[in-house]
Simulated assay, not measured.
Amino acid sequence: MSLHLATTPEANALLAEDPLALLVGMLLDQQIPMEKAFTSPQVLAERLGVARLDAVQIADYDEGELEELFRRVPALHRFPAAMAKRVRELCRALVEQYDGDTASVWTTAADGPELVKRIAGLPGFGQQKARIFTALLGKQFGVRPAGWDTAAAAYGESGSFRSVADVVDGESLKKVRDFKKQAKAAAQAGT
């Protein structure tokens, strides 16, 4: 699978093979460019000295030391302290609820509504982000429990170019950014 969410081939490869990296990228995808958010899991793995991220390791990691890894230049996020804490909370929830098996969040969901509910129940995820992530899983990873597209709402629509779920190359990224600009302008205009 060839992803186009991060800025480097190595970061995209990690996203394709490491469910926790993908989930962390989605968590970080706020108030920074998408490519930065989805590149940061690979940088975090490098800083931790591991090939893949591990929920148990991050859940148990010293809070101050994890924050330092997020702050190190280049910082992993615009708000490194807050996001280090949020990633640690996410990993703790994965350990407590899914025995640290990130993929089981989606591989054991009975249907699309349950999948959205599970994702929305994770720290740092709300309904909208859960729908976008469900669409990403369905569109680019083939994770399609019954009703996934309906549960993902408009993000599950084919050819919608609304979110990261639709980014497969430079052209689709431009379409998603254009859609977001139009939506923001409409919101500001009150329409």
Rank of each mutant, 00 (worst) to 15 (best):
T150W: 03
G112D: 03
S160D: 11
H77R: 09
S40V: 09
T108H: 01
K139H: 15
P113D: 10
R88Y: 01
K36L: 13
D60L: 13
I32M: 13
A187Y: 08
S104C: 06
V164L: 15
E89P: 05
E63P: 06
I32P: 07
P113G: 09
G156F: 00
G112W: 04
D18I: 00
K181N: 12
K181S: 13
A81R: 12
E89I: 06
E46R: 15
C91W: 06
A110K: 10
V116C: 03
K184V: 12
S40F: 07
Q31V: 13
T191F: 04
V24W: 00
L14F: 00
P19V: 04
Y61I: 06
M34V: 15
L94W: 02
I132D: 02
A93V: 09
W148K: 05
T102F: 02
R78T: 14
P123Q: 03
E157F: 01
Q127G: 12
A130G: 05
T150H: 09
F133M: 13
A75L: 06
A81I: 03
A154T: 08
L28P: 01
L94G: 04
S158F: 03
D178C: 09
F79I: 01
G170K: 08
K180G: 06
K85H: 12
A130V: 08
G126C: 02
D99S: 15
L28I: 07
V116E: 03
F125H: 04
A21N: 01
E35C: 02
S104G: 08
A51V: 13
K181P: 03
Q42D: 11
F70L: 06
Q140K: 06
C91Y: 04
A75M: 09
L15K: 00
Q57G: 13
V168I: 12
L20N: 09
E171N: 09
D62C: 12
S2I: 01
A110R: 13
Q97G: 10
S2D: 10
Q30E: 11
R86W: 04
G170R: 09
K117S: 15
V73E: 14
L173T: 08
V143N: 08
S40K: 04
L27V: 10
L69Y: 07
A103G: 12
A153D: 14
M26A: 15
V176E: 10
M1V: 01
G121D: 05
E68Q: 13
L122E: 02
E171I: 11
V143H: 00
Q30I: 08
L5S: 00
A110V: 11
D111A: 08
A55Y: 07
E65W: 04
Q182D: 13
A13I: 00
D149G: 10
G124W: 02
L122H: 02
G147A: 04
A151D: 10
A189K: 10
K85S: 09
K129T: 15
A84W: 03
V24P: 02
A154Q: 11
L20A: 08
G49L: 08
E46G: 15
A13G: 00
K139C: 06
R71I: 02
D18Y: 00
K180R: 15
T7R: 12
H4E: 10
E46Q: 15
V143D: 04
Q97P: 02
K174W: 08
V116M: 07
L20I: 05
L90E: 06
E96K: 11
A135R: 07
D178A: 15
D99G: 05
A120E: 11
A183Q: 13
Q128D: 10
Q188K: 13
D60H: 09
V73W: 07
K174E: 14
T150F: 02
